[in-house]
């Protein structure tokens, strides 16, 4: 390999709550569009719920946001941002593409397997092929990485990034990278907010799939009663129950975190559109997030104390079912308000 000169693009590194919305926000801000992370999240209809089981995972799980990549596409479609995207079968070409963009002073975002991001604490690292980050420079054998979950600009060995970009398995990123080539300076944000809200309501209430949206939360509340029979042993069950806490609290901001971010979006949207009704909805969404957090803490305690009686599971199931009711009412009301905006 030819020796590359060290360089750092003047990119403002910041932590964000979530990697995809944060990465997109960072790139848009760098391109001169001062949108907040909650705005990016809301405009791209980031809020969702999905309960699923797949052969790729050893246990059923849930996600509480829209499908990875949809925030990029949502922002692109609703704000007119044009992203250049590429995948590279050849790993060397994939790495050369990053170097070529850095030479032009362009920060470039990549999708990676979280597991190889060795600047993060060991307990955070899990095989997950949907982690987004931005490469903003290079130094010796390392890339300089702006990762929303890292307090500082991180250094990552080229080999680790290569492994992270080509991990194989489900949803292999295959060297996927993207960067904005056109960022409109005065997009119609009001219209984008309206579309984002309407699409979020549709996704939560009307997608005809039982695993998704409010139906997905109800499915989760039923299926959790089957979890004790699916675990290898008590420790495994404890781990899976405590993962509810991970998914709701920490990893990728979690369900509670996403609900708090969506509440912040609605607050900002109410100010932008001068719509007091959205302010009230933002307060309601904050309370919905608080209830998710209570579920998360309840599950964590259950898991830690190995408290797996049927009554406990029944109570957990009922708490989740109540969340389904609360979110159904919330998004029904929000959909009604969205028609008047």
């Amino acid at each position: 390999m030819n020796k590359m000169n060290d360089l750092v693009i003047p990119f403002e590194h910041r932590m964000f709550a979530h990697c995809e919305s944060g990465t997109v926000t960072g790139l848009l801000n760098h391109g001169g569009l001062p949108l907040t992370e909650p705005m990016v999240f809301g405009i791209s209809s980031g809020i969702l719920f999905l309960y699923f089981k797949t052969p790729a995972l050893p246990f059923p799980t849930f996600v509480v946001r829209n499908f990875p990549g949809q925030m990029i596409r949502g922002v692109s479609r609703r704000l007119g941002v044009k992203f250049s995207t590429a995948k590279y079968r050849d790993q060397k070409k994939g790495e050369d593409a990053i170097d070529a963009l850095l030479d032009k002073g362009i920060p470039v975002a990549c999708r990676t397997d979280f597991y190889y991001m060795d600047y993060l604490p060991a307990y955070m690292r899990a095989h997950f092929n949907f982690h987004y980050l931005t490469i903003v420079g290079r130094k010796g054998s390392k890339f300089l990485v702006s990762d929303c979950y890292s307090t500082e600009l991180a250094e990552l060995e080229r080999e680790s990034l290569r492994k992270g970009r080509y991990p194989g398995g489900s949803f292999d990123p295959r060297g996927f990278l993207f960067y904005p080539v056109r960022v409109p300076q005065n997009p119609d944000i009001d219209a984008a907010i309206r579309k984002g809200i309407k699409a979020a309501c549709f996704n939560m209430l009307r997608l005809p799939v039982k695993q998704v949206g409010v139906k997905g939360i109800r499915l989760f509340s039923k299926k959790i009663m089957e979890w004790p029979g699916m675990a290898r042993n008590e420790d495994h069950l404890s781990h899976e129950i405590m993962k509810i806490n991970i998914l709701l609290e920490d990893q990728g901001t979690g369900g509670a975190g996403y609900r708090f971010m969506y509440a912040t979006f609605l607050r900002q949207a109410s100010e932008k559109l001068n719509a007091p009704a959205l302010r009230e909805m933002s307060e309601r969404m904050m309370l919905v997030g608080d209830d998710w957090r209570r579920i998360s803490i309840y599950a964590a305690r259950m898991g830690k104390n190995h408290d797996f009686g049927e009554t406990k599971f029944r109570e957990l199931s009922e708490k989740i079912a109540r969340q389904a009711d609360a979110e159904e009412k919330f998004f029904t009301d929000l959909a009604r308000i969205a028609k008047t905006l």
Binding site: P55, H127, S170
Partner: peptide, 13 residues
């Protein structure tokens, strides 16, 4: 690493 046989096979190739 909480990988299934299917996922591990995909990753190892």
């Amino acid at each position: 690493e909480e990988l299934t046989e299917v996922e591990l096979a995909g990753r190892v190739g």
